[in-house]
């Protein structure tokens, strides 16, 4: 087992619409680590995770994965296949059943047979508590159920890391818990996770490390109890004040 980080971001910069969103991010994510990213809106949290699987191509800086620099002009599909991502708005494929949502990428990208993909999908649906919903369509499910399907869909690719981009922000409050529970289970099993979240309780209980992003740079980072309970900067104190 190497001590090298699974993901290493070096000097990441990204401008969108003429505004510099990321202004030089250096960040390591270790294997098995649960890293929570917090920060005010517009601080670059989403852009940061989207740069890791190149949904946004960084203007400057590098993304290293497993010790190798990922080049955006080479095959990104291969890189993306090993990086799972869950979105704020689920983005399930509405024309496909739950089962087909889970089997599409494994059959198309990994070359699994339909049977292999289906059995993998079923065990994942079981894991997120939706074993009986494989024939449902996304529109027939609650937001919490859809988001759990979305997590299972990402896991069906057996990724080495999971990116969560504010995955509970679009949910009704009473549905947040079921999604966080699935994520907690994943963390317990040792999945490497990068979690953009406003759920401070989750960050404190599940996160191994918390990063406070502000103005496109890492303003503070450390153990959850340090960052969340003993913030150093006035800005972080103010930010955390919104949650208490």
């Amino acid at each position: 087992m190497s001590a090298a980080p699974l993901i290493r971001l070096k000097g990441l910069r990204k401008s969108l619409g003429g505004k510099e969103i990321l202004r030089g991010i250096d960040l390591d994510v270790a294997r098995g680590e649960v890293l929570c990213v917090i920060g005010p809106s517009g601080s670059g949290k989403s852009t940061l995770v989207r740069c890791i699987n190149f949904l946004e191509i960084p203007d400057q800086g590098t993304v290293e994965f497993d010790g190798a620099v990922v080049h955006p002009d080479e095959s990104l599909d291969q890189h993306r296949a090993r990086v799972g991502m869950v979105f704020q708005r689920f983005n399930l494929f509405p024309h496909l059943s739950v089962l087909d949502n889970l089997t599409l990428a494994p059959t198309q990208v990994l070359g699994l047979s339909p049977d292999q993909a289906a059995s993998r999908a079923r065990s994942l649906l079981d894991r997120v508590g939706l074993a009986d919903r494989e024939r449902s369509f996304p529109a027939e499910m609650s937001g919490g159920q859809q988001q759990r399907v979305a997590i299972a869909r990402a896991l069906a690719m057996q990724p080495q890391v999971m990116l969560f981009d504010e995955v509970t922000s679009a949910l009704d409050p009473e549905l947040v818990g079921e999604v966080l529970a699935v994520m907690k289970g994943l963390a317990r099993e040792g999945m490497t996770m990068l979690v953009v979240t406003h759920q401070m309780k989750f960050a404190r209980e599940v996160g191994h490390r918390v990063v406070f992003l502000e103005g496109g740079v890492v303003a503070e980072e450390g153990k959850p109890e340090d960052v969340l309970e003993r913030p150093k900067s006035g800005r972080l104190k103010e930010f955390l004040g919104h949650f208490s």
């Binding site: 291969q78 993306r80 090993r82 799972g84 991502m85 708005r89 983005n91 599409l104 990208v109 990402a154």
Partner: peptide, 20 residues
């Protein structure tokens, strides 16, 4: 988000077009 979800799963541009 449909394109993004498809590409994030590793589908190529062509596969995303055809299946999603």
């Amino acid at each position: 988000g449909q394109t993004e979800a498809a590409r994030a799963l590793g589908l190529s541009r062509r596969q995303a077009m055809r299946h999603v």
